[in-house]
Design a protein around this nucleic acid. Structure first.
Lengths: 155, 155
DNA sequence: ACTTATTATGTTGCGCGCAATTTAATTGCG
DNA sequence: CGCAATTAAATTGCGCGCAACATAATAAGT
């Protein structure tokens, strides 16, 4: 009978079989692909995500931005300070509730949007997929995301 | 005629239409889902990825590990030092080429594998998908990764 | 009103992740 | 052989990303 090498033979832990690593690696690949395009605008990839939120909902609070991007104030506060320093946004306390900070686009921040459209198109092009294919894949990945977030901790 | 709000109406930049953000978010969700399981082993998620490589190819060099995980020495050197401090690996210069550092599992590092199998199964279970479905999705995401990495910079 | 929760943001500390540079060993070429 | 490229790791600096804690404002309950 074959000697079992401990249990080393299981294909379960082979790197090439890990969906988690595929997603991890693709996320970094997206960041790297966007980098030269975002460099021209002058923002990092996470900063770009914040701008995406603001282009849809200018004047969002830090908490609202964090809710959409799954980021907390520990990440967002310094990131927003950098976006403010570079002139893309302004941060102001809400007059009706001094706890919340509202984030507003400056004209520079609004103008960056047109360049972002071009960047997005360049990336989509490099994927060599149709918009429906991309949308379908996006839905599959979002389903993953939802199940991972609803399963274990919730907090 | 409808007043065009600049070009604000384009759905291209809506967060919910961004495959890149879906992947970004899912990657963080994987890390968060693995965290409580890996905490029991005593490693972080990137450290777990390094262990995956070593369980397949013990004695790999820093460069070989980095090649598989797409990480450079700037990330790996301190990470490996932490894994060494915690007793999972040892690091030694290659006798035939003093430039390369070979990374070897300790018995603690080898023993951690069995716990990793359990962790992986728990995650897969929470995805509520069959192994073939997971494999198919993994292939789609890897295809994305490949196209993103081969398109623009190459270095 | 007063005290106690709760909520929103900010701060600190640490581990990635990557660009840029440095150091040391090896290879190539004359 | 001797010296200039090349290669592998390590180092430095900075921006995330998150846990844990701190601060300040508001809401809730008595």
């Amino acid at each position: 009978m074959p000697h079992a090498h401990k249990d080393q033979d299981t294909p379960e832990l082979l790197l090439e079989n890990q969906l988690c690593f595929a997603v991890y690696s693709a996320a970094h690949a997206f960041t790297a692909a966007y980098k030269p395009l975002l460099d021209q605008i002058g923002v990092t990839y996470p900063q770009y995500l914040v701008l995406l939120v603001l282009w849809e909902a200018d004047g969002s609070s830090v908490g609202e931005i964090g809710g959409k991007l799954n980021l907390d104030s520990g990440t967002l506060t310094p990131l927003l300070k950098r976006l403010e320093t570079q002139g893309f946004i302004s941060r102001n306390r809400d007059k009706n509730d001094e706890r919340v900070v509202r984030v507003s686009l400056t004209s520079l921040g609004r103008d960056a949007r047109i360049h972002a459209v071009a960047a997005r198109r360049a990336i989509v092009c490099s994927l060599e997929k149709t918009e429906p294919e991309i949308h379908k894949l996006k839905a599959l990945v979002t389903e993953l995301d939802d199940r991972l977030r609803t399963s274990a901790p919730n907090r």
